[in-house]
């Protein structure tokens, strides 16, 4: 299996504060990798480094085969990103959003047309395609922005709490989209506060105080921590956290 993310003692310091402390892990192609941790554990910082938005203080990392120090532009071309906070332009229509994001990733007009047709078809948005995004229910927005994030067929897609505040049914539909994408070989790197969603991942890492304290499949982690659920595993680990952002 091809390795698409590889980090080696990746560290980010802000002054005296070590936000991310020598994290080392690998993510394989097509894997759904859950990136968990309490608030302030250093997830966001780590994710920013992997997306080429922040230069590490020390350590090494390659994302999609590119170096996070020198090849940030290449990284950005090969990844997709979606967060709960920013996803789509509310004052543009669905089609306009697709066109815009397709455009910035350098898709041709023809590609954009084909992609947006199949996307509208898949999400059943025929009646809404020409309506403003602001009028859509949150769950649809999230599904749509995921689809837009994978529009340019990235090797890896980073999802930052993609299902926050979404109803349980839509959350599950969202995860079906994730599974579908993973089946086509896209690697999924996802953070979440829902512990049941952690179970849907192939492997999970749990960060505590800037370190990765646990990394394995959900089944193995439960065995390792002698726990019935991921919730318990998380609780056992994060309870010992010392720092408060």
């Amino acid at each position: 299996m091809e390795t698409v993310i590889r980090t080696e003692k990746l560290t980010k310091r802000f002054g005296d504060f070590i936000a991310t402390n020598e994290i080392t892990f690998e993510v394989k192609k097509g894997e759904i990798f859950g990136f968990l941790g309490a608030n302030g554990a250093g997830k966001t910082t780590a994710m920013r480094m992997l997306c080429g938005l922040s230069i590490p203080s020390s350590g090494d990392a390659q994302v999609a085969g590119f170096d996070v120090y020198k090849q940030t532009e290449e990284i950005k071309k090969n990844i997709g990103y979606m967060s709960q906070k920013f996803s789509l332009y509310e004052d543009l229509t669905i089609l306009e959003n697709i066109k815009f994001f397709g455009g910035i990733y350098g898709l041709t007009d023809k590609q954009i047309k084909t992609k947006s047709d199949s996307l509208v078809e898949k999400l059943g948005l025929h009646n809404e395609a020409k309506k403003l995004v602001s009028g859509l229910p949150l769950g649809w927005k999230q599904k749509l922005s995921f689809s837009v994030a994978v529009l340019h067929d990235p090797k890896i897609v980073f999802l930052d709490e993609p299902t926050g505040g979404v109803d349980p049914l839509t959350r599950r539909q969202f995860w079906e989209l994730i599974y579908d994408a993973a089946d086509t070989g896209v690697t999924i790197f996802v953070t979440t506060h829902y512990m049941d969603e952690a179970e849907y991942c192939n492997r999970i890492s749990i960060m505590v105080d800037g370190r990765i304290d646990a990394l394995d499949s959900p089944v193995n982690l439960k065995k390792q921590f002698n726990a019935n659920s991921m919730d318990e595993v998380f609780y056992q680990l994060a309870r010992g956290a010392k720092r408060a952002e």
Partner: peptide, 8 residues
């Protein structure tokens, strides 16, 4: 509790 980790 929105956006707050499971322990908190």
């Amino acid at each position: 509790t929105t956006g707050v980790d499971p322990v908190s």
